[in-house]
Design a protein around this nucleic acid. Structure first.
Lengths: 144, 144
DNA sequence: CAAATAAAGGACATTTTTATCCTATTTATT
DNA sequence: AATAAATAGGATAAAAATGTCCTTTATTTG
């Protein structure tokens, strides 16, 4: 569904949000350790997220990644997916046709649109804050 | 969503079904031409589908690929996806966690399950016959 | 100011996916 | 039996995704 990069990206962003709830800024090393992902690859992804304004980065000692409380509400999963995987999930045809649309639909078009609309809505309505608080109260997990 | 191989596989299978409605057996070359896919790669995918009993292959002159009318009803998209992409779409965690399940869910688990259930149902309830007839009456398209 | 810390970024390596090419096998037709 | 047409399958190539390593840049602290 999502690329590996995107999976790591979401997990990383949720972890950053979780720690930011406590006012903690976190390093790439800590993030990779806590979400069980390859360090250097995770660093690249965090760069992307930072450039896309999904999370905030600070260089130097005591630096790291963080999000302020308002951003956690504003940042939806859709922004992360878009920053890393682009908009394939939203606009692409399920069967890979270039010119598939409502006027010239592929055999799967209508059925696919339904599912994708649900996915899109879910991503656009799910904030990092929501996911981070679920983790905080021990309802969900990020490792393994 | 699906791999390129799977996209080609579905398009190829639907085209085979469409032609089989008219009792026509089709060659790899014709299929690749009609669904606008790379010939040799498409041949490999057709081999997979043939080995998985999704379509029927016949060697030699006048040979090619075909499906009988009953098979078109029996063969669902889920079988094609399973034959080519395996069951990642069904069982994998949205965030790539190995041990994600209802007891130890990732932050996205519940929301993901809903969407995936819909996708699964769609794939399991959509037959090649249904897709082929849509093409036949000119409601849908396979190229571009 | 020097040293240490942490992200940014470039270059490269590995793995997986996608794609091609060539030979072998099967089979219909003459 | 010979030929030709078609799929099967092995070997390889190319491209994309994933992953690693090392240097640069920014910034805090002593």
């Amino acid at each position: 569904m999502f690329s590996k990069a995107c999976e790591y990206g979401i997990r990383a962003a949720v972890y950053v949000a979780l720690q930011s709830l406590d006012g903690r800024r976190v390093s790439v090393n800590e993030i990779a350790e806590e979400i069980d992902s390859p360090i250097a690859f995770t660093a690249k992804i965090l760069q992307q997220l930072s450039r896309s304004k999904v999370i905030h980065s600070v260089k130097g000692p005591t630096g790291g990644f963080e999000l302020d409380r308002t951003e956690m509400d504003t940042v939806k999963l859709s922004m992360i997916v878009h920053a890393i995987d682009g908009d394939d999930i939203y606009i692409g045809c399920g069967l890979g046709l270039k010119e598939c649309n409502a006027n010239q639909p592929c055999p799967l078009h209508d059925k696919f649109v339904d599912i994708r609309t649900d996915l899109k809505n879910m991503l656009e309505n799910t904030s990092l804050y929501e996911l981070a608080t679920g983790l905080e109260v021990g309802l969900t997990y990020l490792k393994r």
